[in-house]
Write a protein that binds this DNA or RNA. Structure first.
Lengths: 247, 247
DNA sequence: CGTGGGGTTGATTCTTATCAATTCGGGTGG
DNA sequence: CCACCCGAATTGATAAGAATCAACCCCACG
Protein backbone atom coordinates (compact mmCIF):
# COMPACT_ATOMS: atom_id res chain seq x y z
CA UNK A 1 0.00 0.00 0.00
CA UNK A 2 1.44 3.36 -0.95
CA UNK A 3 1.45 6.33 1.38
CA UNK A 4 -1.08 8.05 -0.75
CA UNK A 5 -3.43 5.12 -0.56
CA UNK A 6 -3.00 4.68 3.14
CA UNK A 7 -4.10 8.18 3.96
CA UNK A 8 -7.43 8.13 2.15
CA UNK A 9 -10.03 8.30 4.88
CA UNK A 10 -7.77 10.31 7.10
CA UNK A 11 -7.31 12.99 4.49
CA UNK A 12 -11.07 13.09 3.95
CA UNK A 13 -11.65 13.52 7.62
CA UNK A 14 -9.03 16.20 8.01
CA UNK A 15 -11.20 18.40 5.85
CA UNK A 16 -13.38 18.64 8.91
CA UNK A 17 -11.02 18.60 11.83
CA UNK A 18 -7.39 17.97 12.84
CA UNK A 19 -7.02 14.43 14.12
CA UNK A 20 -4.79 13.20 16.90
CA UNK A 21 -2.56 10.14 16.51
CA UNK A 22 -4.93 7.83 18.37
CA UNK A 23 -7.79 8.76 16.08
CA UNK A 24 -5.64 8.33 13.01
CA UNK A 25 -4.63 4.91 14.21
CA UNK A 26 -8.27 3.90 14.61
CA UNK A 27 -9.07 5.04 11.10
CA UNK A 28 -6.15 3.11 9.70
CA UNK A 29 -7.70 -0.01 11.15
CA UNK A 30 -10.53 0.41 8.69
CA UNK A 31 -8.14 0.27 5.76
CA UNK A 32 -6.06 -2.74 6.63
CA UNK A 33 -7.62 -5.27 4.28
CA UNK A 34 -7.27 -3.99 0.71
CA UNK A 35 -8.97 -5.89 -2.09
CA UNK A 36 -8.84 -5.35 -5.84
CA UNK A 37 -11.84 -5.17 -8.12
CA UNK A 38 -11.96 -5.12 -11.90
CA UNK A 39 -14.10 -2.75 -13.93
CA UNK A 40 -17.75 -3.78 -13.73
CA UNK A 41 -17.16 -6.11 -10.81
CA UNK A 42 -19.71 -5.96 -8.02
CA UNK A 43 -18.20 -4.82 -4.74
CA UNK A 44 -21.44 -5.58 -2.93
CA UNK A 45 -24.82 -6.58 -4.26
CA UNK A 46 -28.30 -5.50 -3.39
CA UNK A 47 -29.79 -7.99 -0.96
CA UNK A 48 -26.51 -9.07 0.61
CA UNK A 49 -26.10 -8.64 4.32
CA UNK A 50 -24.92 -5.12 5.04
CA UNK A 51 -22.64 -6.08 7.90
CA UNK A 52 -19.56 -4.79 6.10
CA UNK A 53 -18.66 -1.37 4.82
CA UNK A 54 -15.92 -0.44 2.36
CA UNK A 55 -13.41 2.34 2.08
CA UNK A 56 -12.25 3.23 -1.40
CA UNK A 57 -8.49 3.56 -1.79
CA UNK A 58 -8.23 4.04 -5.54
CA UNK A 59 -10.39 4.05 -8.64
CA UNK A 60 -14.02 4.92 -9.30
CA UNK A 61 -17.05 3.04 -8.05
CA UNK A 62 -20.76 3.70 -8.00
CA UNK A 63 -23.95 2.82 -6.21
CA UNK A 64 -26.76 1.88 -8.55
CA UNK A 65 -30.26 0.55 -8.41
CA UNK A 66 -31.78 -1.51 -11.16
CA UNK A 67 -35.56 -1.56 -11.43
CA UNK A 68 -37.34 -4.81 -12.24
CA UNK A 69 -37.88 -3.77 -15.85
CA UNK A 70 -34.24 -2.86 -16.38
CA UNK A 71 -34.31 0.88 -15.89
CA UNK A 72 -31.23 1.88 -13.97
CA UNK A 73 -30.38 4.80 -11.73
CA UNK A 74 -26.85 5.56 -10.63
CA UNK A 75 -27.15 6.95 -7.12
CA UNK A 76 -23.65 7.85 -6.15
CA UNK A 77 -20.12 8.03 -7.43
CA UNK A 78 -17.28 7.04 -5.15
CA UNK A 79 -13.68 8.18 -5.40
CA UNK A 80 -10.75 7.52 -3.07
CA UNK A 81 -11.51 8.39 0.53
CA UNK A 82 -15.20 7.67 0.32
CA UNK A 83 -16.91 5.15 2.53
CA UNK A 84 -19.32 2.81 0.80
CA UNK A 85 -22.45 1.65 2.54
CA UNK A 86 -22.83 4.08 5.43
CA UNK A 87 -26.49 4.72 4.73
CA UNK A 88 -27.18 1.00 4.51
CA UNK A 89 -26.78 0.56 8.25
CA UNK A 90 -30.49 1.08 8.72
CA UNK A 91 -31.30 -2.24 7.17
CA UNK A 92 -29.92 -5.74 7.35
CA UNK A 93 -29.31 -5.81 3.63
CA UNK A 94 -27.89 -3.56 0.98
CA UNK A 95 -30.58 -1.83 -0.98
CA UNK A 96 -28.40 -1.06 -3.98
CA UNK A 97 -25.53 -2.52 -5.92
CA UNK A 98 -22.02 -1.19 -5.51
CA UNK A 99 -19.97 -1.60 -8.61
CA UNK A 100 -16.40 -0.84 -9.60
CA UNK A 101 -16.27 1.38 -12.66
CA UNK A 102 -12.50 1.25 -13.11
CA UNK A 103 -9.86 -0.86 -11.45
CA UNK A 104 -10.60 -0.31 -7.81
CA UNK A 105 -8.86 -1.01 -4.55
CA UNK A 106 -11.23 -1.02 -1.61
CA UNK A 107 -11.11 -2.28 1.96
CA UNK A 108 -14.04 -4.11 3.46
CA UNK A 109 -14.39 -3.73 7.20
CA UNK A 110 -17.03 -5.04 9.60
CA UNK A 111 -19.75 -2.70 10.73
CA UNK A 112 -18.86 -3.69 14.26
CA UNK A 113 -15.51 -1.93 13.83
CA UNK A 114 -17.38 1.29 13.31
CA UNK A 115 -19.10 0.80 16.63
CA UNK A 116 -15.70 0.25 18.11
CA UNK A 117 -14.47 3.53 16.66
CA UNK A 118 -17.49 5.39 17.98
CA UNK A 119 -16.86 4.16 21.47
CA UNK A 120 -13.15 4.69 21.57
CA UNK A 121 -13.16 8.07 19.89
CA UNK A 122 -16.39 10.00 20.31
CA UNK A 123 -15.03 12.82 18.18
CA UNK A 124 -14.76 10.44 15.28
CA UNK A 125 -18.38 9.55 15.87
CA UNK A 126 -19.16 13.23 15.43
CA UNK A 127 -17.15 13.26 12.24
CA UNK A 128 -18.93 10.27 10.79
CA UNK A 129 -22.11 12.15 11.56
CA UNK A 130 -20.79 15.05 9.52
CA UNK A 131 -19.79 12.73 6.71
CA UNK A 132 -23.30 11.36 6.59
CA UNK A 133 -24.76 14.86 6.60
CA UNK A 134 -22.48 15.84 3.77
CA UNK A 135 -23.59 12.85 1.75
CA UNK A 136 -27.12 14.02 2.28
CA UNK A 137 -26.25 17.44 0.97
CA UNK A 138 -24.84 15.81 -2.13
CA UNK A 139 -27.98 13.74 -2.62
CA UNK A 140 -30.10 16.85 -2.27
CA UNK A 141 -28.15 18.61 -5.00
CA UNK A 142 -28.58 15.52 -7.12
CA UNK A 143 -32.33 15.67 -6.68
CA UNK A 144 -32.39 19.29 -7.76
CA UNK A 145 -30.14 18.49 -10.67
CA UNK A 146 -32.23 15.64 -11.95
CA UNK A 147 -35.53 17.18 -11.04
CA UNK A 148 -35.31 20.72 -12.21
CA UNK A 149 -32.48 21.22 -14.65
CA UNK A 150 -32.14 20.71 -18.39
CA UNK A 151 -29.83 18.06 -19.82
CA UNK A 152 -27.03 20.53 -20.49
CA UNK A 153 -27.27 22.03 -17.02
CA UNK A 154 -27.22 18.59 -15.46
CA UNK A 155 -24.11 17.52 -17.27
CA UNK A 156 -22.38 20.80 -16.53
CA UNK A 157 -23.32 20.46 -12.89
CA UNK A 158 -21.94 16.94 -12.70
CA UNK A 159 -18.66 18.06 -14.18
CA UNK A 160 -18.35 20.87 -11.66
CA UNK A 161 -19.22 18.49 -8.85
CA UNK A 162 -16.53 16.06 -9.95
CA UNK A 163 -14.06 18.88 -10.29
CA UNK A 164 -14.78 20.07 -6.77
CA UNK A 165 -15.00 16.67 -5.12
CA UNK A 166 -11.76 15.33 -6.50
CA UNK A 167 -10.04 18.45 -5.21
CA UNK A 168 -7.68 18.82 -8.10
CA UNK A 169 -6.52 22.28 -8.98
CA UNK A 170 -6.27 21.31 -12.62
CA UNK A 171 -9.19 21.87 -14.94
CA UNK A 172 -8.45 18.70 -16.85
CA UNK A 173 -10.43 15.98 -15.14
CA UNK A 174 -10.05 12.26 -15.68
CA UNK A 175 -13.58 11.06 -16.07
CA UNK A 176 -13.65 7.38 -16.93
CA UNK A 177 -17.41 6.80 -17.06
CA UNK A 178 -19.14 5.60 -20.19
CA UNK A 179 -21.87 7.84 -21.51
CA UNK A 180 -24.37 5.18 -20.61
CA UNK A 181 -23.23 5.46 -17.00
CA UNK A 182 -23.35 9.23 -17.08
CA UNK A 183 -26.82 9.00 -18.52
CA UNK A 184 -27.97 6.70 -15.75
CA UNK A 185 -26.51 9.06 -13.19
CA UNK A 186 -28.27 12.09 -14.68
CA UNK A 187 -31.46 10.27 -15.67
CA UNK A 188 -30.87 10.78 -19.37
CA UNK A 189 -30.24 8.41 -22.25
CA UNK A 190 -26.72 7.74 -23.43
CA UNK A 191 -27.60 9.17 -26.83
CA UNK A 192 -28.67 12.38 -25.24
CA UNK A 193 -25.47 12.59 -23.24
CA UNK A 194 -23.54 12.49 -26.47
CA UNK A 195 -25.53 15.35 -27.96
CA UNK A 196 -25.39 17.32 -24.75
CA UNK A 197 -21.61 16.99 -24.56
CA UNK A 198 -21.46 18.48 -27.99
CA UNK A 199 -23.62 21.38 -27.03
CA UNK A 200 -21.35 22.17 -24.08
CA UNK A 201 -18.33 21.94 -26.40
CA UNK A 202 -20.00 24.17 -28.97
CA UNK A 203 -20.70 26.76 -26.32
CA UNK A 204 -17.01 26.73 -25.50
CA UNK A 205 -17.54 25.64 -21.91
CA UNK A 206 -15.54 22.42 -22.13
CA UNK A 207 -13.27 20.43 -24.38
CA UNK A 208 -13.36 16.65 -24.48
CA UNK A 209 -10.94 13.97 -25.63
CA UNK A 210 -11.12 10.31 -24.72
CA UNK A 211 -11.71 10.04 -21.00
CA UNK A 212 -10.54 13.54 -20.20
CA UNK A 213 -12.75 16.57 -19.92
CA UNK A 214 -11.14 19.98 -19.88
CA UNK A 215 -13.10 22.77 -18.28
CA UNK A 216 -12.33 25.88 -20.29
CA UNK A 217 -14.01 28.39 -18.02
CA UNK A 218 -14.83 27.10 -14.57
CA UNK A 219 -16.61 30.24 -13.43
CA UNK A 220 -18.87 30.26 -16.44
CA UNK A 221 -19.57 26.56 -16.08
CA UNK A 222 -20.52 27.06 -12.45
CA UNK A 223 -22.91 29.84 -13.37
CA UNK A 224 -24.33 27.94 -16.29
CA UNK A 225 -24.97 24.81 -14.25
CA UNK A 226 -26.47 26.63 -11.30
CA UNK A 227 -23.91 25.03 -9.04
CA UNK A 228 -24.35 26.10 -5.45
CA UNK A 229 -20.95 27.31 -4.40
CA UNK A 230 -21.49 26.91 -0.71
CA UNK A 231 -22.25 23.23 -1.00
CA UNK A 232 -19.32 20.89 -0.51
CA UNK A 233 -17.60 23.57 1.47
CA UNK A 234 -17.25 22.26 4.94
CA UNK A 235 -17.81 25.07 7.24
CA UNK A 236 -19.71 23.88 10.16
CA UNK A 237 -21.12 25.06 13.44
CA UNK A 238 -20.83 21.48 14.46
CA UNK A 239 -17.21 20.48 14.07
CA UNK A 240 -15.98 23.58 15.78
CA UNK A 241 -17.94 23.45 18.98
CA UNK A 242 -16.08 20.28 19.45
CA UNK A 243 -15.24 17.90 22.20
CA UNK A 244 -11.71 17.36 23.42
CA UNK A 245 -9.63 14.79 21.55
CA UNK A 246 -9.63 11.13 22.49
CA UNK A 247 -9.24 10.45 26.17
CA UNK B 1 -48.78 20.63 25.05
CA UNK B 2 -50.80 17.48 24.72
CA UNK B 3 -49.42 14.07 25.54
CA UNK B 4 -49.51 13.13 21.93
CA UNK B 5 -47.50 16.16 20.96
CA UNK B 6 -44.99 15.72 23.70
CA UNK B 7 -44.00 12.26 22.62
CA UNK B 8 -43.16 13.05 19.01
CA UNK B 9 -39.46 12.51 18.75
CA UNK B 10 -39.50 9.86 21.38
CA UNK B 11 -42.01 7.78 19.47
CA UNK B 12 -39.94 8.20 16.33
CA UNK B 13 -36.87 6.99 18.13
CA UNK B 14 -38.57 4.09 19.73
CA UNK B 15 -38.96 2.63 16.26
CA UNK B 16 -35.28 1.92 16.54
CA UNK B 17 -34.68 1.08 20.15
CA UNK B 18 -36.27 1.09 23.59
CA UNK B 19 -35.21 4.20 25.48
CA UNK B 20 -34.51 4.56 29.15
CA UNK B 21 -35.97 7.40 31.24
CA UNK B 22 -32.78 9.46 31.18
CA UNK B 23 -32.68 9.34 27.43
CA UNK B 24 -36.33 10.23 27.15
CA UNK B 25 -35.76 13.19 29.42
CA UNK B 26 -32.95 14.44 27.22
CA UNK B 27 -35.14 14.19 24.13
CA UNK B 28 -37.94 16.08 25.83
CA UNK B 29 -35.52 18.94 26.30
CA UNK B 30 -35.51 19.37 22.56
CA UNK B 31 -39.25 19.92 22.50
CA UNK B 32 -39.68 22.44 25.25
CA UNK B 33 -40.12 25.58 23.16
CA UNK B 34 -43.12 25.07 20.87
CA UNK B 35 -43.90 27.72 18.26
CA UNK B 36 -46.80 28.02 15.84
CA UNK B 37 -46.51 28.66 12.14
CA UNK B 38 -49.24 29.47 9.63
CA UNK B 39 -49.56 27.83 6.24
CA UNK B 40 -46.88 29.13 3.90
CA UNK B 41 -44.86 30.70 6.69
CA UNK B 42 -41.12 30.19 6.55
CA UNK B 43 -39.81 28.21 9.50
CA UNK B 44 -36.24 28.85 8.42
CA UNK B 45 -34.88 30.47 5.31
CA UNK B 46 -32.03 29.58 3.05
CA UNK B 47 -28.99 31.60 4.04
CA UNK B 48 -29.89 31.96 7.69
CA UNK B 49 -27.47 30.70 10.27
CA UNK B 50 -28.06 27.00 10.82
CA UNK B 51 -27.37 27.07 14.54
CA UNK B 52 -30.88 25.89 15.37
CA UNK B 53 -32.77 22.76 14.47
CA UNK B 54 -36.51 22.16 14.73
CA UNK B 55 -38.67 19.27 15.78
CA UNK B 56 -42.11 19.07 14.25
CA UNK B 57 -44.94 18.44 16.69
CA UNK B 58 -47.93 18.78 14.40
CA UNK B 59 -48.78 19.68 10.82
CA UNK B 60 -46.96 19.36 7.53
CA UNK B 61 -43.82 21.21 6.50
CA UNK B 62 -41.38 20.91 3.64
CA UNK B 63 -37.84 21.69 2.62
CA UNK B 64 -37.61 23.40 -0.73
CA UNK B 65 -35.03 25.00 -2.95
CA UNK B 66 -35.85 27.77 -5.35
CA UNK B 67 -33.53 28.26 -8.31
CA UNK B 68 -32.61 31.76 -9.43
CA UNK B 69 -35.04 31.60 -12.35
CA UNK B 70 -37.95 30.48 -10.20
CA UNK B 71 -37.92 26.75 -10.77
CA UNK B 72 -38.64 25.04 -7.49
CA UNK B 73 -37.85 21.63 -6.08
CA UNK B 74 -39.45 20.31 -2.93
CA UNK B 75 -36.80 18.21 -1.23
CA UNK B 76 -38.51 16.76 1.78
CA UNK B 77 -41.82 16.53 3.51
CA UNK B 78 -41.94 16.69 7.29
CA UNK B 79 -44.62 15.30 9.53
CA UNK B 80 -44.78 15.14 13.34
CA UNK B 81 -41.70 13.57 14.87
CA UNK B 82 -39.32 14.68 12.17
CA UNK B 83 -36.30 16.79 12.86
CA UNK B 84 -35.73 19.68 10.50
CA UNK B 85 -32.24 20.74 9.56
CA UNK B 86 -30.09 17.78 10.55
CA UNK B 87 -28.23 17.69 7.28
CA UNK B 88 -27.57 21.41 7.44
CA UNK B 89 -25.04 20.96 10.21
CA UNK B 90 -22.26 20.73 7.64
CA UNK B 91 -22.54 24.38 6.79
CA UNK B 92 -22.97 27.59 8.70
CA UNK B 93 -26.13 28.41 6.83
CA UNK B 94 -29.26 26.68 5.70
CA UNK B 95 -29.10 25.72 2.07
CA UNK B 96 -32.84 25.40 1.61
CA UNK B 97 -36.04 26.96 2.82
CA UNK B 98 -38.20 25.23 5.39
CA UNK B 99 -41.83 26.11 5.02
CA UNK B 100 -45.01 25.26 6.86
CA UNK B 101 -47.60 23.76 4.53
CA UNK B 102 -50.42 23.61 7.04
CA UNK B 103 -50.74 25.02 10.51
CA UNK B 104 -47.60 23.74 12.17
CA UNK B 105 -46.26 23.53 15.68
CA UNK B 106 -42.51 23.12 15.80
CA UNK B 107 -39.83 23.53 18.45
CA UNK B 108 -36.59 25.26 17.63
CA UNK B 109 -33.62 24.10 19.67
CA UNK B 110 -29.96 25.11 19.54
CA UNK B 111 -27.54 22.86 17.71
CA UNK B 112 -25.41 22.94 20.83
CA UNK B 113 -28.15 21.00 22.63
CA UNK B 114 -27.59 18.19 20.21
CA UNK B 115 -23.95 18.08 21.16
CA UNK B 116 -25.06 17.93 24.74
CA UNK B 117 -27.27 14.96 24.00
CA UNK B 118 -24.48 13.17 22.19
CA UNK B 119 -22.17 13.53 25.15
CA UNK B 120 -24.63 12.61 27.83
CA UNK B 121 -26.22 9.69 26.00
CA UNK B 122 -23.95 8.06 23.48
CA UNK B 123 -26.71 5.67 22.51
CA UNK B 124 -28.80 8.60 21.37
CA UNK B 125 -25.86 9.69 19.27
CA UNK B 126 -26.04 6.30 17.60
CA UNK B 127 -29.74 6.78 17.05
CA UNK B 128 -29.33 10.19 15.47
CA UNK B 129 -26.84 8.51 13.21
CA UNK B 130 -29.52 6.02 12.24
CA UNK B 131 -32.04 8.80 11.70
CA UNK B 132 -29.64 10.50 9.33
CA UNK B 133 -29.02 7.25 7.49
CA UNK B 134 -32.74 6.70 7.18
CA UNK B 135 -33.21 10.17 5.73
CA UNK B 136 -30.57 9.26 3.19
CA UNK B 137 -32.46 6.15 2.25
CA UNK B 138 -35.54 8.28 1.69
CA UNK B 139 -33.60 10.71 -0.49
CA UNK B 140 -32.25 7.82 -2.52
CA UNK B 141 -35.74 6.53 -3.20
CA UNK B 142 -36.71 10.04 -4.19
CA UNK B 143 -33.89 10.16 -6.71
CA UNK B 144 -35.00 6.90 -8.25
CA UNK B 145 -38.57 8.08 -8.27
CA UNK B 146 -37.84 11.36 -9.99
CA UNK B 147 -35.12 9.99 -12.18
CA UNK B 148 -36.50 6.77 -13.54
CA UNK B 149 -40.22 6.54 -13.11
CA UNK B 150 -43.17 7.83 -15.12
CA UNK B 151 -45.49 10.49 -13.78
CA UNK B 152 -48.11 7.97 -12.67
CA UNK B 153 -45.55 5.78 -10.96
CA UNK B 154 -44.09 8.76 -9.18
CA UNK B 155 -47.40 9.91 -7.81
CA UNK B 156 -48.34 6.39 -6.79
CA UNK B 157 -44.99 6.00 -5.07
CA UNK B 158 -45.42 9.24 -3.16
CA UNK B 159 -48.83 8.17 -1.93
CA UNK B 160 -47.46 4.86 -0.71
CA UNK B 161 -44.56 6.61 0.97
CA UNK B 162 -46.92 8.97 2.79
CA UNK B 163 -49.10 6.06 3.77
CA UNK B 164 -46.14 4.18 5.22
CA UNK B 165 -44.43 7.13 6.86
CA UNK B 166 -47.47 8.43 8.66
CA UNK B 167 -47.98 4.95 10.07
CA UNK B 168 -51.72 5.01 9.89
CA UNK B 169 -53.51 1.74 9.42
CA UNK B 170 -56.24 3.48 7.50
CA UNK B 171 -56.07 3.73 3.74
CA UNK B 172 -57.67 7.15 3.76
CA UNK B 173 -54.82 9.61 3.99
CA UNK B 174 -55.08 13.29 4.75
CA UNK B 175 -52.90 14.89 2.17
CA UNK B 176 -53.09 18.65 2.37
CA UNK B 177 -50.63 19.60 -0.38
CA UNK B 178 -51.68 21.62 -3.39
CA UNK B 179 -51.04 20.00 -6.74
CA UNK B 180 -48.43 22.64 -7.43
CA UNK B 181 -46.56 21.45 -4.33
CA UNK B 182 -46.92 17.82 -5.30
CA UNK B 183 -45.64 18.70 -8.73
CA UNK B 184 -42.61 20.44 -7.31
CA UNK B 185 -41.92 17.45 -5.11
CA UNK B 186 -42.14 15.00 -8.02
CA UNK B 187 -40.56 17.28 -10.60
CA UNK B 188 -43.71 17.55 -12.65
CA UNK B 189 -46.03 20.43 -13.51
CA UNK B 190 -49.18 21.01 -11.52
CA UNK B 191 -51.25 20.47 -14.65
CA UNK B 192 -49.70 17.10 -15.13
CA UNK B 193 -50.40 16.15 -11.53
CA UNK B 194 -54.05 16.78 -12.16
CA UNK B 195 -54.09 14.53 -15.20
CA UNK B 196 -52.02 11.88 -13.48
CA UNK B 197 -54.38 11.80 -10.51
CA UNK B 198 -57.17 11.11 -12.92
CA UNK B 199 -55.31 8.28 -14.52
CA UNK B 200 -54.75 6.66 -11.13
CA UNK B 201 -58.42 7.10 -10.34
CA UNK B 202 -59.44 5.67 -13.70
CA UNK B 203 -57.29 2.63 -13.08
CA UNK B 204 -59.14 2.13 -9.84
CA UNK B 205 -56.03 2.46 -7.69
CA UNK B 206 -57.21 5.42 -5.64
CA UNK B 207 -60.19 7.63 -4.98
CA UNK B 208 -59.81 11.34 -4.27
CA UNK B 209 -62.00 13.96 -2.64
CA UNK B 210 -60.81 17.34 -1.38
CA UNK B 211 -57.67 16.80 0.60
CA UNK B 212 -58.22 13.12 1.22
CA UNK B 213 -56.86 10.32 -0.90
CA UNK B 214 -58.23 6.86 -0.43
CA UNK B 215 -56.03 3.98 -1.46
CA UNK B 216 -58.34 1.33 -2.87
CA UNK B 217 -55.80 -1.45 -3.20
CA UNK B 218 -52.58 -0.89 -1.34
CA UNK B 219 -50.86 -4.02 -2.61
CA UNK B 220 -51.59 -3.15 -6.20
CA UNK B 221 -50.49 0.44 -5.69
CA UNK B 222 -47.22 -0.77 -4.18
CA UNK B 223 -46.57 -3.03 -7.15
CA UNK B 224 -47.58 -0.40 -9.64
CA UNK B 225 -45.34 2.25 -8.11
CA UNK B 226 -42.35 -0.04 -7.75
CA UNK B 227 -42.23 0.77 -4.06
CA UNK B 228 -39.38 -1.03 -2.34
CA UNK B 229 -41.01 -2.77 0.56
CA UNK B 230 -37.87 -3.13 2.61
CA UNK B 231 -37.21 0.58 2.69
CA UNK B 232 -38.53 2.46 5.68
CA UNK B 233 -38.47 -0.74 7.65
CA UNK B 234 -35.97 -0.29 10.38
CA UNK B 235 -34.19 -3.48 10.80
CA UNK B 236 -30.64 -2.78 11.51
CA UNK B 237 -27.40 -4.53 12.27
CA UNK B 238 -26.47 -1.31 13.95
CA UNK B 239 -29.07 -0.63 16.60
CA UNK B 240 -28.96 -4.14 17.89
CA UNK B 241 -25.27 -4.57 18.50
CA UNK B 242 -25.83 -1.79 20.87
CA UNK B 243 -24.15 -0.19 23.78
CA UNK B 244 -25.54 -0.29 27.28
CA UNK B 245 -28.04 2.42 28.17
CA UNK B 246 -26.98 5.75 29.61
CA UNK B 247 -24.42 5.52 32.38
C1' DC C 1 -8.50 -9.37 -40.11
C1' DG C 2 -12.89 -9.97 -37.62
C1' DT C 3 -15.53 -8.69 -33.44
C1' DG C 4 -17.67 -6.02 -30.10
C1' DG C 5 -18.35 -2.12 -27.18
C1' DG C 6 -18.72 2.65 -27.07
C1' DG C 7 -19.76 6.82 -29.44
C1' DT C 8 -22.08 9.59 -33.07
C1' DT C 9 -25.81 10.90 -36.18
C1' DG C 10 -30.46 11.11 -38.14
C1' DA C 11 -35.51 10.22 -38.05
C1' DT C 12 -39.35 9.56 -35.40
C1' DT C 13 -42.20 9.07 -31.26
C1' DC C 14 -43.48 9.86 -26.56
C1' DT C 15 -43.89 12.19 -22.43
C1' DT C 16 -44.43 16.15 -20.22
C1' DA C 17 -44.34 21.36 -20.21
C1' DT C 18 -46.47 25.42 -21.35
C1' DC C 19 -50.14 28.52 -22.34
C1' DA C 20 -54.84 29.81 -22.09
C1' DA C 21 -59.54 29.38 -20.89
C1' DT C 22 -62.97 27.62 -17.72
C1' DT C 23 -64.84 25.71 -13.57
C1' DC C 24 -65.15 24.89 -8.78
C1' DG C 25 -65.34 26.08 -3.95
C1' DG C 26 -64.48 28.52 0.06
C1' DG C 27 -64.27 33.01 2.18
C1' DT C 28 -65.54 38.01 2.41
C1' DG C 29 -68.17 42.04 2.57
C1' DG C 30 -72.37 44.35 1.52
C1' DC D 1 -78.33 35.65 1.85
C1' DC D 2 -76.17 36.86 -2.15
C1' DA D 3 -72.57 38.80 -5.20
C1' DC D 4 -68.02 38.80 -5.69
C1' DC D 5 -63.28 37.28 -5.52
C1' DC D 6 -59.47 34.45 -5.40
C1' DG D 7 -56.74 30.44 -5.45
C1' DA D 8 -56.79 25.85 -6.88
C1' DA D 9 -58.16 22.34 -10.11
C1' DT D 10 -59.50 21.02 -14.58
C1' DT D 11 -59.57 20.87 -19.62
C1' DG D 12 -57.94 21.63 -24.27
C1' DA D 13 -54.39 22.87 -27.73
C1' DT D 14 -49.75 23.24 -28.82
C1' DA D 15 -44.72 23.03 -28.19
C1' DA D 16 -40.41 21.47 -26.36
C1' DG D 17 -37.26 18.20 -24.66
C1' DA D 18 -35.69 13.81 -24.38
C1' DA D 19 -36.31 8.75 -25.51
C1' DT D 20 -36.12 5.37 -28.78
C1' DC D 21 -34.79 3.02 -32.88
C1' DA D 22 -31.58 2.18 -36.37
C1' DA D 23 -27.55 2.80 -38.94
C1' DC D 24 -22.87 3.74 -38.94
C1' DC D 25 -18.11 4.89 -37.34
C1' DC D 26 -14.14 4.25 -34.59
C1' DC D 27 -10.92 1.70 -32.38
C1' DA D 28 -8.99 -1.48 -29.09
C1' DC D 29 -8.30 -6.29 -28.68
C1' DG D 30 -8.30 -11.09 -29.73
Amino acid sequence: MSDEEESCIVSQFRQFLELDPGEIELLYQLEKDPRSYSPDELIAASGQSSDHLFTVLSGWACAERILPDGRRQVLDLFTPGHIIGLREIISHHYTSDFRALTDVVACPFPLADLHEVFEQAPRLGDLFFLVLAREQAILVERIINIGRRTAAERLAHLLVEIRVRTQTTSNRIEFPLTQTMIGDALSLSSVHISRTYQRLCDRGLIKKRDGVVEILDLEELIDYSGFERSYLEINSNWAHTTRPATA
